[in-house]
Design a protein around this nucleic acid. Sequence first.
DNA 1: CGCTTTATTGGGCTGAGTCTATTTAAAACG
DNA 2: CGTTTTAAATAGACTCAGCCCAATAAAGCG
Lengths: 203, 203
Amino acid sequence: MTDAPRAMRGRPRVGSPSLLEEAAFELFLENGYAGTTVEQISTRAGVSRNTFFNYFAAKSDVFWVGLDASIDRMAAVLDAASADTDTDDGVTPIELLRDALLDVADRLGPSDVPWVLTHFELIGSTHEVMASAIGRATRLSNVIERALGDSAPAAVSRSLSFACVAAVIAAMTSWAEAGPDRGSLAAHLERALSPVLAGFTAL
Amino acid sequence: MTDAPRAMRGRPRVGSPSLLEEAAFELFLENGYAGTTVEQISTRAGVSRNTFFNYFAAKSDVFWVGLDASIDRMAAVLDAASADTDTDDGVTPIELLRDALLDVADRLGPSDVPWVLTHFELIGSTHEVMASAIGRATRLSNVIERALGDSAPAAVSRSLSFACVAAVIAAMTSWAEAGPDRGSLAAHLERALSPVLAGFTAL
DNA sequence: CGCTTTATTGGGCTGAGTCTATTTAAAACG
DNA sequence: CGTTTTAAATAGACTCAGCCCAATAAAGCG
């Protein structure tokens, strides 16, 4: 995960999300999540505590650097796709959605599994971690629901987007559990997503 | 929501979940969620701050007194149903699941909507609230997955249970939004759940 | 060299959540 | 009726995430 290009003006950055991420994961391995303070993370990364909060709104946000980028990509892909289909061709919104999800998932290889999923026993179900996780789920859901637009009643769009998010979570879970030769996320997602989309296509 | 019977031995309880719940909701209406401290809630309820934490593990748990009871009931219904079908009759696990969910949902009338859902703008997406919400979702998911047992591969069971939870959330959301004549949760849940179960039944 | 921009930093503050120890109110017992 | 047991309430202190604000450092620009 390469960091975004820095501004050419003003004081140069000394920290970065990935720098803090690495420091954090080291310490989590040593002392666990709850046993590690933001102070310690910042110190190991060579910055001050406040600088940590310049890069992350919360301690638990260090877990989702990669996933946030994927959700960004998902939004971009959906925007591009819906722009393409202004001229109404025969592709359904659900097919569009499926393609976008699998497109993003296909780019995620075995080493892209969120660290928190492969070290869950070490981290545990802290309130903060749960909150940060549902924050991502909500954002993905909003991205999907926006892309669906008014192609269906609002209640249906919401059910569908929630169900898609649920499929993504289920897929990521089994992907993470599958071990080093887990392949890309796409195959797992396909399995979790198919029945859901099949059910909604019938509507 | 009547409280559980107290022990007959020892110092009698002066507080109760519902007592604290009422005090909390009053204060949330006056000052918002973030603007209300646990200290204030306890004081209004006539107990000490520590007593609050005897009844709730976290401030945000006051939102889910009713829902927790429903999840308990859900677990009980599923247990009973799976005990009944030891003698293998023709009812599929998915039908069992559907019946249990609708049975519990049917008991929830218009006034049983979680307060937090009808006052969401006032509460906002605090980290704590999100964490408490996903905690409930996780518990419900575990209850469902356990009931499914080994009737399907683990990955499928997980996808299905996640999808069911997603349907429950979507249903509760539109239920809450539907206004005072929203009826019971069951009708909303039926709509959200049908496509999901249809898709998985095909497997 | 000022000026502007951007980032880091220091210090202080609130409040959730935890822990340990103590006290209180009732029931049960002899 | 005093004593013991038990469960609950309480007191007090502590850690740390998250927030805010003001100060400072490092770069480019005129």
